[in-house]
């Protein structure tokens, strides 16, 4: 067990390729759990998990909640509105108060980059980053990796292009780390105003035109264009964005081979992606959603069991408490 995870999952940047593969391999059998008549296993029975969401999220929160419930954990959702946070309580105070009620894990979504790591250093519970500012969204990238591995049978050597607003996207950052660590080739394509400066230094190719990216790639991950970016002056208009960077059926027809299409959701149909593409035969967007639950189950399971000091104590003691036959 060389690849065990640390106490927290804050991002893919600090993980080794072996740790990422461990999570993906562990996610595999969890897919089957969601197909059972009773979609539940007792692996995390008695664990209490708090979903602490400082930003609106539907898909990610529900996906985590399903993952927790299918592992038999007890869950509490804390949303910012109506909580003590609005009364001025700090993040650490909120978490310490929760911890005083004996919780085991915190799943946190926060608008500030680094919030998950900050919290993880200050509380004993395991912390899972469900998106922090523009930093990382590790479970989203893990489900992207799992979906690509399902589709192609491998990640190594795959050519994956992220299209759109890379600058503000924590999904893009986590994807880039994960894909590069597992040996994929990564490119980005989008308006220069929405690409981080010097992104090439990460080992990423930059395409100016979507047509070029389509010629090159095996798969596109189409990022969501947040409509407020237009008001902030990053792009002239949504229509122009669609005309220049939209992933359309016409553009994809020119690809040398069918491209696998991913999107982290929620989609803006007719802005970054054409409906015919999103609903087309090569779209794996809903597979991503299905895999999201399995990947999150794997992460929670691995973190919950990853208490090496207990494992060592059990090994020293031998006898009862050792592994069963």
């Amino acid at each position: 067990m060389t690849a065990a995870l640390d106490k927290d999952l804050v991002g893919l940047a600090p993980l080794s390729a072996e740790q990422i593969r461990l999570i993906l391999d562990t996610a595999e059998p969890f897919k089957e759990v969601s197909e059972r008549p009773i979609k539940k296993v007792p692996a995390l029975r008695g664990k209490t998990i708090v979903n602490l969401f400082f930003e609106a999220s539907t898909r990610t929160r529900i996906s985590f909640e399903f993952a927790e419930k299918r592992l038999s954990a007890d869950t509490v959702n804390v949303a910012v509105s109506g909580s003590a946070v609005q009364k001025g309580e700090t993040l650490v105070d909120t978490a310490r108060n929760l911890e005083a009620m004996r919780i085991d894990m915190v799943v946190i979504r926060h608008p500030s980059s680094g919030a998950a790591e900050f919290l993880g250093r200050r509380i004993r519970s395991n912390v899972v980053n469900a998106g922090d500012g523009k930093h990382e969204h590790p479970t989203q990238a893990l489900l992207d990796l799992l979906t690509l591995r399902d589709k192609f049978g491998r990640i190594e050597g795959l050519k994956v292009c992220l299209v759109g607003d890379v600058l503000h996207s924590r999904v893009a950052r986590s994807d880039i780390w994960g894909l590069l660590k597992l040996g994929a080739q990564v490119a980005v394509c989008g308006p220069r105003t929405l690409l981080p400066r010097r992104i090439e230094e990460l080992g990423v190719t930059v395409f100016e035109h979507v047509a070029d990216a389509i010629q090159w790639a095996d798969a596109l991950n189409v990022l969501r264009l947040q409509l407020e970016r237009m008001e902030a002056g990053f792009i002239p208009s949504v229509r122009e964005y669609y005309r220049v960077f939209g992933v359309t059926a016409e553009r994809l027809e020119k690809a040398p081979r069918p491209l696998t299409i991913m999107h982290p959701g929620p989609m803006n149909r007719g802005v970054e992606i054409d409906s015919r593409v999103a609903d087309g035969p090569h779209s794996v967007i809903l597979d991503q959603v299905t895999n999201g639950v399995a990947v999150r189950m794997a992460v929670l399971y691995l973190l919950a069991g990853g208490k090496p000091e207990l494992a060592d104590a059990a090994k020293r003691g031998g006898g009862p408490g050792g592994p069963p036959d």
């Binding site: 065990a4 692996a43 069991g305």
Partner: peptide, 18 residues
């Protein structure tokens, strides 16, 4: 996933299919 000793022995590296 039905074992009663996850806490003490930690997760198995890879779970087989059911």
């Amino acid at each position: 996933l039905y074992r009663d000793d996850l806490e003490t022995v930690g997760p198995k590296p890879v779970i087989g299919p059911t």
